[in-house]
Amino acid sequence: MHGRPSRAAAALLLAATILPAMQAASAADACKGRIYLTFDTGSQSQAGLIADTLNRHHIKATFFLANEKTVRGDWSLDPSWAAYWKARVAEGHAFGSHTFDHVYWKRDEAGGRIAVKPQFGAHAGKQQTWTAEQYCGELRRVDARFRELTGRGLDPIFRAPGGHTSPNLLAAARSCGYSHVGWARAGFSGDETSSEVFPNALLLKRALDNLKDGDIFMAHMGIWSRKDPWAPANLEPLIAGLEQKGFCFATLREHPDYASHFKK
């Protein structure tokens, strides 16, 4: 015989419905602000450490990918990196283009064209003039390769190498659906600077003292030139210090300036 549920059963059903919402609200209340960690490819010397640290803290970040020479003697978008990128996809991170050959903007030219200089690839070190369509093609090369490696395409965001943009470059990217992502002034990790002039302790203190709600933080997955690498010394204490201050972390999918772009 089927009748009305007992009071005990009804109470359990109500608890099962309300408690998760209350727990989510409590977590949101406990979060005093959000920091958006982003990582650009580089020498990849810190790729494993970055992944392990993010996993240990249950943090989702955003990665910007270019096909860069790595300390393993291969390239960051070679098939040899497929397992690494597949694992990051499975963990729920976000991914953007960093141009396939790590192409630097040099200047704007007439007719919407752009003077650029690739760091890698067939035209490494040679200045070229591209149309908007050519720049879009460079952004999409990363998407195509990432899809080959992981079965997933990139998110509709990109970061120009060095953060150098211009009206022509931004217009070109917009024409093929990409929004540019820079970083907050306090969000510059300093991992490209001289470790003698900017030691890790100084960089860590600067970040912890100045990062605020909504800031985008940028670091690399390894830098060739820095003698005292940033990530091994600073990533764990940076995250722990921000957590102690009540900050939470999210991908750019949740950033108010970019969330709408992910829904297109």
Rank of each mutant, 00 (worst) to 15 (best):
C248Y: 07
I216F: 03
Q244A: 15
C248M: 03
S26G: 15
F100C: 00
S194C: 09
Q23C: 13
A30L: 11
L208P: 02
A132I: 15
A173N: 05
D78M: 04
K264C: 13
R34I: 15
V89W: 04
H102W: 05
A27Y: 11
A231T: 14
V71G: 01
F217G: 01
I114L: 02
K69C: 11
P79A: 10
P256K: 03
R7D: 14
Y178K: 01
L208H: 06
T53M: 00
F120E: 10
A259R: 12
Q119C: 15
K86W: 12
L49N: 07
D228A: 08
A61D: 04
A233M: 09
D257A: 15
D74R: 02
S26I: 14
K32N: 08
A207T: 07
A25R: 15
K263D: 13
K212S: 07
S175V: 10
L13K: 11
W230L: 01
L204S: 00
L208I: 12
G163A: 01
Y84H: 05
G111Q: 08
D228N: 10
P20A: 08
G42P: 00
A9M: 11
K212A: 07
A21D: 12
Y178P: 03
F120R: 00
H220D: 03
A122H: 07
A144R: 06
R140C: 09
A87P: 07
W183A: 00
D74C: 06
G151W: 14
S179M: 13
S195R: 01
I18T: 12
R88S: 09
D155T: 12
K106T: 14
R113A: 12
T99A: 00
T150C: 01
G137W: 08
A186C: 05
R113P: 08
P229Y: 07
C31R: 05
T17Y: 14
T99P: 01
W75R: 04
G73E: 08
W230H: 02
Y36I: 15
R226D: 08
D213T: 13
W230Y: 08
S175E: 07
I223L: 05
Q134L: 09
K264D: 14
M22I: 12
E133R: 06
G241A: 04
N55K: 09
S166A: 07
A10D: 10
T38H: 04
H102A: 01
S260P: 06
R253C: 09
N234D: 11
W85S: 04
K106M: 14
H93R: 04
A172Y: 01
A83V: 14
